[in-house]
Design a binder for these strands. Structure first.
Lengths: 141, 141
DNA sequence: CGCACGTTGTTGACGCATCAAGTTCGGCTG
DNA sequence: CAGCCGAACTTGATGCGTCAACAACGTGCG
């Protein structure tokens, strides 16, 4: 559990100019209808805090892989949209990412082990979010 | 896999003045005969790079939780030794750490799921270390 | 006997995550 | 309709991890 994320991240950065998390962000966007998603929605889908996402999106914007735009007349809502360059970047990176995950995880497990791992993930997530259902919560105490 | 380490780390830092990794370091030391271990050995047992360990040990030393000492006549060998204060710190932190791991992982799993998870861990570790058996390798290319 | 090399650690610079504070909206309430 | 509150982001400071370079120490080879 400790080694796997580190190993994946290390390998990704060797083969592509993308962090694992950056890849997740771009990847989620690429699957969206207009390649566009609101920041807070993007945050929950990548299981990141809004703060972290904002920083990362800021960097990705500087690298011209996506763009931000305020949604007028809708509070402070902001959407991020994948650019053409960003789309090409994800597409180029995808095979390597998939291969890494297969090599380190999927391919070394029996089908029933994978199924169990899936159940474990769901159970653990539930346990974590039971008393702390929010990421980046406002200070209530 | 992504959420669990973050959740554990967050909870530890709320309840104790120790990072999960700092806890591991102190904990490993506390189980040693003289509460003493060589840096490189400590690094492998905490699955960290020597560099990372050196930084962390440096900080822990500033906080007087352990001490470093060169071993004369043995290359550049250095050993870290837990102080009394360090020992008290681990002992105080231990129950919280154990409780957190139980709450988020152990207690939400069926025994057979836990057993499978164990096998998964071993398989994944093997896959990761197959072609990259060294941490912090010298640049050979 | 000297020096080149491998081992073992340490250090500094840099990048990323986190936390707390600030900002900008809309909506509700009195 | 005025002020207040919460939602949705952003920003800046701080701390940790990583990488590459360096440092210190034996050892074996020529």
């Amino acid at each position: 559990m400790i080694s796997l994320p580190a190993a994946l991240d290390a390998r990704m950065q060797r083969e592509t100019p993308l962090t694992f998390f950056e890849y997740m962000v771009l990847s989620v966007l690429s699957e969206q209808p207009e390649r566009t998603l609101q920041m807070s929605e993007l945050a929950t889908r990548t299981s990141a805090s809004l703060s972290r996402l904002s920083h990362v999106v800021g960097r990705l914007e500087k690298r011209c892989l996506l763009e931000r735009a305020r949604v007028p007349g809708a509070g402070r809502r902001t959407v991020a949209t994948l650019t053409e360059a960003g789309y090409r970047e994800v597409v180029a990176a995808a095979p390597g990412h998939v291969a890494a995950v297969r090599e380190y995880l999927i391919d070394v497990l029996e089908p029933h082990e994978l199924a169990t791992l899936r159940r474990i993930g769901i159970a653990v997530d539930a346990a974590i979010n039971r008393r702390r259902p929010d990421v980046d919560p406002p200070r209530t105490s």
